[in-house]
Structures are given as structure tokens and as C-alpha cells.
Amino acid sequence: MNDLEQIRQWIATHSLLWNIFKFISLAVIILVLIKFSRKQLKKNIPDTALRYKSQKGIEILGYILLITLSVVYFTGSIKDFTLLLGLVTAGMAFTLQELILSIAGSLYIFLVKVYKPGDRIEINGIKGDVIDVDSIYTTMMEIGQWVSSDNYSGRIVKLSNAFVFKGPIYNYSQDFPFIWDELNLPIRYGSDIEQAKSIIIKIAIDILSDYTSKSKAQWKEVVNKFYIEDAQVDPTLAITLNDNWIQFNLRYIVDFKKRRFTKHLLHDTIRNAIKQTNGSVQLASSTLELIKIPKLEIDVKGKNST
């Protein structure tokens, strides 16, 4: 009877030692995986902030896993390590969700052809020309901000590719590398309106003829590809009457990179043409007309000192 009891004690003791050995082995494996993951993240993530967050996330996740393993391993509540592995995988997916979304975004960009280097886009409120797309980031040369119109600001912006899943993307050049623009001209009442219309339309047709002819062929392809109605790409003029002047609104199509220069050329050419009309067509400006000046009387009475 004593021999049987000794055998049982020996088995129980060695079983405990075996469990301790397995626990230490698993803990070492987890620590090695944490260290290996941190090194890989350091190599493959160029952005300092994202790299730091990812490394800290892996480290915290590893410690949580070690604590959980310590609590439940000897209680027998987790018999199958595959369940623990599933929890680790889910934790890593949650911790590295930004990185995973960025990689998925890069695949989406290349497969769906959302944009490519050379396109002008606006994403997450930032507008610029795409100069590079890698597995994590989209790099853009920024336009706008503190400079007017579509000029480069000089800043290079890196955006996570995850943003393609988080909001709209405006592409100025994909499929149809032209945009519609407009300018407004105030013409004084009493001007020769028909002459003014003729001047503006003629100048617009002459300056924009190249853009108009090229855009017509490409617009047909857009209409055939998408469910969209046919649009007018020739310059159009609309007139609005207001309290101060007759407003001429010229709408036209232009290359997406030539918007600012084209508007300058139209304004300058139209100004010179109106100047040559010798006053029959005049540009208007805001004026203030005084209808009546009130009469002002000052009565000054002197007093003699005594």
C-alpha cells in the first residue's frame, strides 16, 4: 500500500514538473515572438509614430498573453492551445488594424485603380498630385493651403492607404483629365450687350479650342463607360441681371493642370478686347450714389464780456 502511494506521489510530482516545463517553454516562445515581431515592424514601417504604436501594441499584447497564460494554464480551463492561438491572432489583428488596413488599402488602390502616380486627387481634405504609392503610404505633392488656386505649396504629404476605406476620394484626372471652370464678368448697364456677348464667346472659343476638341472624344468614352448623361463641353455664356450690373458667367472646360493660367489668359484677353470698343462695352464696379446731401446750418452767437 505504501509503494502504491509513493508511485502516485512520484507521478503527481513529475506531472507538475512537466506542466511547469511546458509553461516555461510557451512563455519563452511568446517572448521570442514578441522580440521578432518588434524587429520586423522596425524594419518594414518607415513612419516613426506608426512604428512606435505598433511595437508598443505588440509588447502590451504579449504581456497580456503571458498573464492570461499564467492564470489559466494550471487551472485546466484551456486544454487546447489552438484556442489560445486564436486569441493571439485576434489580438494581433486588433492591435495592428491600422497597418493591416493600410496594406489592404494599397491592394485596393492597385487592383481597382483608384488612383496612380501622376493623378491629382483630394483625400481626407488634402489635395495634391500623387507622386508615389507603396504598400503602406500614398505620397502627394500638396497644392493649395496658404497659396491660392492650384499651385504647389512645397510640402510633401504622406497619407496612410487606409484612408481609401474611410471617406471619399476626388480624382481630377482619372478617365477624364479635364475639369469645368467658370469666370464672372460684371458689365455696366448701357453697354452694347450683344457686342459684349460676341467678344467673350469668340475669345473663349479661340483660347479653349484645343481643350474642347480633345475633351469631346474623351467625354464620349466616359459616357459609354459610366451611367452618365452627355454634357456640353463647348464654352457657354449665361447672363444674370442684378442691382449693380449685368453679370456674364462663362463656363468652359480646361485641362486640370492649366486652370489658373487659362483663367488669367481669358481675363487678360477679354480686358484688352473691351478696352478697344471705345466705351461701347464697359466693365462695372461697385459704386455709391448719394441722392441728396442734407443742408447743414451752424448758428454761432458771440457774447460780449462786461
Score class of each variant (00 low, 15 high):
Pro117Phe: 00
Gly118Val: 00
Gly118His: 08
Gly118Tyr: 03
Ile121Thr: 06
Ile121Phe: 01
Glu122Lys: 12
Glu122Arg: 09
Glu122Tyr: 02
Ile123Trp: 05
Ile123Thr: 13
Ile123Glu: 11
Ile123Asn: 12
Asn124Asp: 09
Ile126Val: 05
Ile126Trp: 01
Gly128Trp: 00
Gly128Asp: 00
Gly128Asn: 01
Gly128Glu: 00
Val130Gln: 08
Val130Thr: 06
Val130Glu: 06
Val130Ile: 04
Asp132Gln: 15
Asp132Leu: 08
Asp132Tyr: 11
Asp132Ala: 15
Asp132Thr: 14
Asp134Ile: 02
Asp134Ala: 01
Asp134Leu: 00
Asp134Gln: 02
Ser135Met: 11
Ile136Gln: 01
Ile136Arg: 01
Tyr137Asp: 15
Tyr137His: 12
Tyr137Trp: 09
Thr138Gly: 04
Thr138Cys: 04
Thr138Gln: 06
Met140Glu: 05
Ile143Cys: 09
Ile143Gln: 13
Gly144Gln: 09
Gly144Ser: 03
Gln145Glu: 08
Gln145Ser: 10
Trp146Ala: 13
Val147Ser: 05
Ser148Trp: 13
Ser149Gly: 15
Ser149Phe: 14
Ser149Arg: 14
Ser149Cys: 10
Ser149Asn: 13
Ser149Tyr: 08
Asn151Glu: 14
Tyr152Val: 14
Tyr152Phe: 15
Ser153Lys: 07
Gly154Ala: 09
Arg155Leu: 03
Arg155Ala: 07
Ile156Asp: 06
Ile156Phe: 03
Ile156Ala: 06
Lys158Pro: 05
Leu159Asp: 01
Leu159Ala: 02
Asn161Ile: 02
Ala162Glu: 03
Phe163Ser: 13
Val164Met: 14
Phe165Glu: 06
Phe165Thr: 05
Lys166Arg: 14
Lys166Tyr: 10
Gly167Arg: 03
Pro168Cys: 04
Pro168Asn: 12
Ile169Arg: 04
Ile169Phe: 10
Tyr170Lys: 11
Ser173Glu: 08
Ser173Tyr: 03
Ser173Gly: 11
Asp175Ala: 04
Asp175Val: 05
Pro177Lys: 00
Pro177Thr: 02
Phe178Ala: 06
Ile179Trp: 06
Ile179Gly: 10
Ile179Met: 11
Trp180Ile: 07
Trp180Arg: 13
Trp180Gln: 06
Asp181Leu: 14
Asp181Met: 13
Glu182Gln: 15
Glu182Val: 12
Leu183Asp: 12
Asn184Phe: 09
Asn184Ser: 15
Leu185Pro: 04
Leu185Arg: 03
Pro186Gln: 12
Pro186Asp: 09
Ile187Pro: 02
Ile187Ser: 01
Ile187Val: 12
Arg188Ala: 15
Tyr189Leu: 09
Gly190Leu: 10
Gly190Trp: 12
Ser191Gln: 01
Ser191Pro: 00
Asp192Val: 15
Asp192Met: 08
Asp192His: 09
